[in-house]
């Protein structure tokens, strides 16, 4: 994919370089929550970002949206949107706007809709603000969006209140809001985890279809590696604020290279002994040069303690951050 891009000379929709976010700590070094993230997503590409709780998945999404929670600071790093550098998209003078160019869908859809505004008002609010449309045009567009997300009886749903919707329906409305202004990038932060698996599947099918249809770049953040196996073109594994593996779907599931990726898959394969290892708390030593995963790694070597591995290319479009990548799953 990287190769194809250089040939056509087409910039990815979003490119992150060396994105680093740190949180200050009282009487100590700031804690690095995101450590030098490099990631690019092309139009029409769906990238799955997988990691355990606290790995920095949501923080990455919020950093792109310029909405870093708490005292977090963007220490360094650059972001390009369609080849042009962007900074702080939350600022009023930013040419790239959150909600219009980069949209985000968060989990727990029923809480994401304002309980005292109708569905139609909430969609048209966003449309009217970003696209500067009149009332009637915005309503027409909202109706189109509800049709696009396959909501039955969309005319009536425009005047429905959020509490009258089911969870899946609410999630569709949220997707409609996110896609209403034709964004270049959509980030789904664990958006479907609150839904029934069957509904989850319907919503993800729909999301995938819309992403392909509109040529949107999508970042699908999830804890469920199985979801990425079904829907994503590329899998990125995040561990403790670092990208540890980045690979095309087929290559990744055929043979994960990073020991952590192997553990993740094993956890989903219900292996008790491996899961015990995967749930062990990482021992964080701030100044240690060691690989961040070393404490939990079954394949640890002296070199892993002495020297942190870099994210290196192992095959076209495939990167791994490990001195001793797994060649075959035992």
């Amino acid at each position: 994919m990287a190769l194809a891009r250089t040939i056509e000379n087409e910039a990815p929709v979003i490119a992150l370089r060396n994105l680093t976010v740190a949180y200050p700590r009282y009487g100590g070094e700031p804690r690095t929550a995101l450590a030098g993230i490099d990631l690019a997503i092309d139009a029409g590409e769906m990238v799955g970002l997988v990691g355990e709780a606290g790995a920095g998945k949501t923080l990455l999404a919020r950093t792109i949206m310029d909405a870093i929670p708490g005292d977090g600071r963007l220490v360094c790093g650059e972001m390009d949107y369609r080849g042009a550098p962007i900074s702080r998209i939350g600022r009023d003078d930013s040419p790239v706007r959150p909600g219009r160019d980069i949209a985000m869908i968060v989990s727990n859809p029923r809480n994401e809709l304002n309980p005292v505004l109708t569905v139609g008002t909430q969609i048209t609010n966003v449309i009217r603000h970003h696209l500067r449309l009149g009332k009637a045009e915005a309503r027409e567009r909202a109706l189109q969006m509800l049709r696009a997300v396959a909501i039955p009886d969309p005319e009536r749903r425009l005047d429905a209140w959020p509490h009258e919707l089911s969870g899946g329906m609410a999630q569709r409305v949220v997707i409609a809001i996110a896609l209403a202004c034709n964004p270049g990038l959509v980030i789904s932060d664990d958006a479907t985890s609150a839904l029934d698996v069957t509904v989850q599947r319907q919503v993800l099918d729909l999301f995938k279809a819309l992403v392909e249809d509109k040529g949107v770049a999508a970042l699908l953040i999830t804890r469920d590696i199985a979801v990425t196996a079904h829907y994503c073109d590329r899998i990125v594994i995040l561990y403790d604020g670092e990208v540890v593996e980045d690979a095309p779907r087929k290559a990744f599931f055929d043979r994960p290279h990073h020991p952590y990726s192997v553990l993740l898959m094993a956890a989903f394969a219900h292996s008790v002994s491996l899961r015990r290892q995967w749930t062990a708390a990482p021992l964080k030593t701030a100044a240690s040069p060691a690989c961040r995963f070393a404490e939990r790694c079954v394949r640890r070597q002296p070199r892993c303690i002495a020297e942190a591995p870099a994210l290196r290319d192992v095959a076209p479009g495939r990167r791994v951050r490990c001195h001793f990548p797994v060649e075959a799953v035992a």
Partner: peptide
């Protein structure tokens, strides 16, 4: 939070 992320 969603309204803010939607750029309102």
């Amino acid at each position: 939070a969603f309204a803010r992320l939607s750029g309102l």
